[in-house]
Computed example of a mutant assay.
Amino acid sequence: MATRRKKNKLGVKNSLVNNINARKNKGISRSKKKGTVKKEDYDHLKKNEWD
């Protein structure tokens, strides 16, 4: 008997990567401007500096 996987409203299995890719394919991915990461945190990511 095959098990059915739960799918979210984007129609994909729940995982961060699947959600990002599904949004990208639908053309509704968030730009950096509308992102939820602060600019200073993003700069730390780019420089690879964490406390």
Rank of each mutant, 00 (worst) to 15 (best):
K6Q: 11
K7Y: 02
K7I: 06
K7C: 05
N8I: 01
N8P: 02
K9G: 10
L10W: 07
L10A: 04
L10K: 01
L10P: 04
G11V: 02
G11A: 00
G11L: 01
G11T: 03
V12S: 04
V12R: 02
V12K: 03
N14Q: 12
N14I: 13
S15Q: 03
S15I: 04
L16H: 10
L16G: 10
L16W: 11
L16T: 11
V17G: 00
V17M: 01
V17S: 01
V17C: 00
N18E: 09
N18G: 03
N18M: 03
N18L: 02
I20P: 01
I20D: 03
N21R: 07
N21A: 02
R23V: 00
R23S: 07
R23Q: 12
R23L: 09
K24A: 13
K24N: 14
N25G: 08
N25V: 12
N25P: 06
N25D: 14
K26S: 05
K26T: 05
K26F: 07
G27L: 03
G27K: 01
G27Q: 03
G27I: 04
I28T: 09
I28Y: 04
I28H: 02
I28D: 08
I28W: 05
I28K: 01
S29Y: 10
S29M: 08
S29P: 00
S29N: 11
R30M: 12
R30G: 03
R30K: 15
R30T: 12
R30E: 12
R30N: 12
R30L: 14
R30P: 03
S31R: 07
K32E: 00
K32T: 00
K32I: 00
K33G: 04
K33V: 06
K33D: 06
K33T: 08
K33F: 06
K34Y: 01
K34E: 02
K34C: 00
G35N: 14
G35R: 12
G35K: 10
T36N: 09
T36H: 08
T36Q: 07
V37P: 08
V37H: 06
K38I: 00
K38E: 05
K38Y: 05
K39V: 11
K39A: 12
E40S: 11
E40I: 06
D41L: 14
D41R: 15
Y42D: 13
D43A: 15
D43C: 08
D43H: 12
H44Q: 15
H44E: 14
L45G: 15
L45A: 14
L45F: 15
L45N: 15
K46P: 08
K46Y: 04
K46V: 09
K47M: 11
K47H: 10
K47R: 15
N48C: 15
N48G: 15
N48L: 15
E49D: 11
E49L: 13
E49C: 09
E49P: 04
